[in-house]
């Protein structure tokens, strides 16, 4: 009788584990799909980067976790953890650099963008980012932004 119960328990446990693996893989795939659709549908670099950075990184995390759950071994689990860690460390930095580079080379910004407070803050020569005029305008004096004219 107890043998039968243990067998039943193991059966249910492996069933739940399989269901989790499937769930993770399906949601990972859906996230990749969303990232792809987002890249096609969005209208400028920044909105595209938004779609790609979020859905992409969580999608990879889901996939790798599914792999770790499927193999159930320590080596795979450690490697999976490292992969997830590095993805979450590097994706924001890559996104940040692409967005910044896009602004420097004046990639056209979507005309629905309602406000652009970065406008005129970059020094064209040195690429340094000034923000002193923001303090001044917050204090009430309306100083014109320094720097150069801006992308559209």
């Amino acid at each position: 009788m107890t043998d039968f119960l243990i067998l039943l328990r193991d059966h249910w446990l492996s069933l739940i584990a399989d269901a989790l693996v499937i769930l993770l893989m399906v949601s990972g795939t859906l996230l990749f799909l969303l990232a792809a659709v987002g890249i096609v549908r969005m209208r400028d670099v920044y909105t595209r980067m938004q779609a790609a950075s979020k859905a992409g990184s969580l999608g990879v995390a889901c996939m790798v976790m599914a792999v770790a759950m499927y193999f159930k071994s320590l080596n795979v689990a450690v490697e999976a953890t490292l992969v997830v860690l590095f993805i979450f460390l590097t994706t924001p930095i890559a996104t940040h650099l692409i967005a910044r580079a896009g602004y420097f080379v004046r990639v056209p910004i979507w005309d629905r963008t309602a406000r652009d407070e970065l406008e005129g803050c970059y020094d064209a020569e040195t690429h340094t980012l000034q923000s002193d005029h923001l303090d001044e305008s917050a204090a009430g004096t309306d100083a014109p932004p320094p720097g150069r004219s801006e992308p559209q």
């Binding site: 980067m49 950075s53 940040h96």
Partner: peptide
């Protein structure tokens, strides 16, 4: 949200 840059100061 997406961070683009940090100001110099």
């Amino acid at each position: 949200t997406l961070t683009m840059d940090v100001s110099e100061n």
